[in-house]
Design a protein around this nucleic acid. Sequence first.
DNA 1: CGAAACGATACGCACCTGCTTATCATTTGT
DNA 2: ACAAATGATAAGCAGGTGCGTATCGTTTCG
Lengths: 138, 138
Amino acid sequence: MNEDDDLGALCAGAGRALAEAERPVLERHGLTMWQYVVLSALAAGAAPSQLVLAQQIRYDKTRLITLLDALEAAGLVAREPDPADRRARVVRLTTEGGRRHAAVRAEIREVEDGKLAGLSVEARRVLRSALAHLANTE
Amino acid sequence: MNEDDDLGALCAGAGRALAEAERPVLERHGLTMWQYVVLSALAAGAAPSQLVLAQQIRYDKTRLITLLDALEAAGLVAREPDPADRRARVVRLTTEGGRRHAAVRAEIREVEDGKLAGLSVEARRVLRSALAHLANTE
DNA sequence: CGAAACGATACGCACCTGCTTATCATTTGT
DNA sequence: ACAAATGATAAGCAGGTGCGTATCGTTTCG
C-alpha cells in the first residue's frame, strides 16, 4: 500500500487491516462487527426508533430486526415501546450491554494503539481529525 | 462520525464517503470500482501472473478471470503467456488502458482534493502517511 | 371519522463475496 | 520419465447486502 495511492484505496487498506486485527477481539467476546457497531451507537445514547438506528449505522432497516433480536436475546439491548408513539420501539443498552461494550471497546483501543505505534501523538490527532472531516463531508 | 469513534469506524466512514463521491466518476467512464483497482495495479507495472495480481488487489482469483475478460474485451488490458512459464499469463495495460486509467485517476484526484478542502498541506501529508502506515502494519 | 402516512416485521430477489472442487496444460522435483 | 505441484479456467455453494413488497398496528390530518 503506497503513500501516493488513491485516498480511497488507502482508507480501504487501513480499514481492512484494522478490521482484521480487531476480529479476534470481537470473536473472543462473541460479537459480530455489526453487533458491536450497534452497541457503540447505543452507547452514545438510546435510539428513539429502530429506523433511526438503522440510518445512524447505515445498516438495512429490515435486517436490523434480526440483528436486534440476537442482541436482545443475549440480554445486551432492550426494546421498549415509545410511550409517545407506540409504533416506535426505543432501543437502549442494558446494564450488561453497556459493560460488554465498554470491555470490547477497551480491547479494541489497545489493538488500535498497537497499530498506531510509531506515530507521534500529533500525527494520531491529525489522523483522527482528518478522517472525521472526510467522513462528514457529504 | 465523531472524532473519538473507533479508528476502524472512522476509516470505514471516510472510505464510504470517498467511494460515494467517486462513483459518478467511475460510472461516467464505464468502469466498476474493481475494474479501476485492476487498472491502478497494472499502471504500477504489469502483473507476472493473474494469481499474483489477485493477491495484490486482494480479489478472489477465480473471480478475477471474468473481471479480466471484460477489461480485455474492452481493450484496456492484454493477457500474454509468460514465455518463461507458459502456464502463467502476464497481464499488462494496453495503451488505451493506460490512457483511460490516467484520465479516471486525474478526475478522482480532483474529487479527493475537493473532499480534503479545509485541511492543511501538512495535515494531508500526515493523513496519507498514517493511512499507509496502518495499511502496512500486518 | 376515515384515508393516508409511518414504524416494525416477514419474506423473497438479485447481486456480490470468499471458498471449494474439478479440469487441463505446463512445469518441477526426484 | 513420471508423479506432484502450479496456473488458468469453469461451475457451484453458502452467506451477506441492499432493495422491494406485503402485513399489521398506530398515528396524523383533512
